[in-house]
Nucleic acid binder design. Structure first.
Lengths: 180, 180
DNA sequence: ATCATAAATGAACAGAGTGTTCGTTATGTG
DNA sequence: CACATAACGAACACTCTGTTCATTTATGAT
């Protein structure tokens, strides 16, 4: 990728996430972004079709980084079985999320809702497998929705209570799940 | 309230919620609303300052109806104690939500996120009291956030699986909470 | 039924943002 | 160096916003 493109893209991301700390997503205009990023109008549109596409691209960047290993990795079982695997996996994801400098900015505002939707999409893939192994008297559809939302919301809560470690948060999360 | 005002307000609500079924909240313009409601531009603005205020007003209408009794009612304890009360209260709220014709339209789209924020605000008041009586090893802040999101998301799920009764949904919800 | 009150109307307005175009300039790459 | 390509910036038509105001219409109280 051309050095100029990288620089421009970076400037847009910085400007955008910076603005997200100051105003809501819907109140941010393309004009705001290009003014802060100090780039030309046509340059912005040569990178992203719309503001929404920008947000999507940013989310994808974060998720691809976080979930790259988890989605491809062989689901090996260790001595203590399934549950231990899930806790490890969750802790692992939380460590990755902790590293993302953009995540907190994105989650702590209205655009968090859009992020959450993408986030939940990825999470479904992870929990679906877990759910198949679980016996329950409530509908699977309910349980999957519950797990996905629960985890995503746990992360959102965590971003406002960063004093806790990934291990602690994983523990909090699992203590309220119907898995055992 | 003047008959004309009521009629206009109703037309706006109808147009707005109808549009919500077709496009996302942010893609709906004031122009869309007044065209469908068949009212003048200035009439809209004499009722609501902005599109956001319209959504807020609509949410308030729904909530005031649903929570009016719950928030003021004396928290009497029956024979089986606290837990039974909570289940009753939840079932009761679910019955009210089931009656709202606008709720499904609002929840099944992007603006659902905005609705959810208002919704959660009300729910916090309800669960805060419940939480005080609960002993737990996870932070209260986490548990409150968890309960509130969990319930709101349960309702959202329910709107897409209406085959279940309020009693059943209350049961699903309580089966995944750390209360006992 | 009358009449003052209040609501709805519609046209017009400035202002702001959008998304596109295109010729020019500058910056990396081979 | 020379070529390719990215960024620039000015201009464009377009849409939406939120406000104003003079006019018409409906309402509720008497």
């Amino acid at each position: 990728m051309d050095r100029r493109q990288k620089k421009t893209r970076q400037a847009i991301y910085e400007a955008f996430t910076g603005l997200l700390e100051e105003k809501t997503y819907s109140n941010i205009t393309v004009k705001d972004i290009i003014d802060r990023a100090d780039i030309g109008r046509s340059t912005f549109y040569s990178h992203f079709e719309t503001k929404d596409e920008l947000l999507k691209a940013l989310c994808s960047d974060i998720f691809d980084h976080v979930f790259a290993e988890n989605l491809t990795r062989e689901t090996t079982h260790d001595f203590s079985g399934r549950e231990k695997n899930l806790e490890d996996e969750i802790t692992h994801i939380l460590y990755h999320l902790k590293d993302s400098s953009y995540l907190k900015r994105i989650l702590s505002c209205e655009s968090g809702e859009m992020f959450m939707r993408f986030f939940k999409g990825y999470l479904e893939k992870i929990f679906e497998g877990e759910l198949e192994k679980t016996k329950t008297h409530v509908p699977k559809s309910y349980l999957l929705h519950h797990m996905v939302c629960d985890f995503a919301e746990t992360v959102r809560w965590w971003m406002n209570h960063e004093s806790y470690s990934p291990e602690q948060v994983a523990c909090f999360f699992l203590s309220t799940t119907p898995f055992q």
